[in-house]
Design a protein around this nucleic acid. Structure first.
Lengths: 106, 106
DNA sequence: CCGACATGCAACTTTCGAGTTGCGTATCAC
DNA sequence: GTGATACGCAACTCGAAAGTTGCATGTCGG
């Protein structure tokens, strides 16, 4: 089981979501992204590093520039695991509630 | 659409996952959690505040103590939205790939 | 009433992440 | 080759988050 926390840490930032949203429209380089955002290219480069480390994004060299591609797979995978945990918690709650409402059962 | 980012920010911390994991086994108070973890009660209280703010946890007064209950619903909800985004990204990628492999189609 | 346990609030370090500037290097276009 | 464009690396500032200590408040059992 790959570690979940870095993915959430990566997703817990507004600027990175702006980057991901932009990349969702199509691959782009750090410089291109810096053009339409209120931060420096280097700041974006750092964010892209974090996103890549989390497996949410993938670099693609194209000559002298490096375009980044968003990876939906990691997101879907994370979603599945999140849902599994959430469902387990809900199940436990439901069981407790049922016992509370009808203690004679079981 | 409730804001997603705070939830991820809350989930992007190791200590908070330890807390959530412990609460997954059953409701507990800050003091009880501090007993089995290498941090102060106040630190845990702060984390619980963050988790509550994110809607991942709910306080339940029980006399002089306050037990916390984990909320799977928020997690499942978040998972659904995550999956939707991830799927959309994958769809775009697949479309591009298809065009690249068979440019004459369409 | 009184001691023990549980919580709440506030001030204070300390660590970490976001963002910046500055500079060196590679690559395209002519 | 030369200028312009695109990256990469390193050092620095800065503000927020994690964690701590100290103290005041509330509540339960006897």
């Amino acid at each position: 089981m790959t570690t979940l926390v870095p993915v959430f840490a990566a997703l817990g930032d507004d600027t990175r979501w702006q980057i991901l949203s932009a990349l969702g429209e199509g691959d782009a380089s750090a410089s291109a992204l810096a053009g339409r955002m209120p931060v420096t290219r280097q700041a974006i480069a750092k964010h892209l590093g974090v996103l890549q480390q989390a497996g949410l994004v993938e670099p693609v060299r194209a000559g002298r520039e490096v375009r980044y591609r968003v990876l939906g797979a990691r997101l879907s995978d994370t979603a599945r695991r999140l849902d599994a945990i959430g469902t387990a918690w809900e199940r436990r709650l439901a069981a407790i509630k049922e016992i509370a409402e009808d203690p004679t059962a079981h």
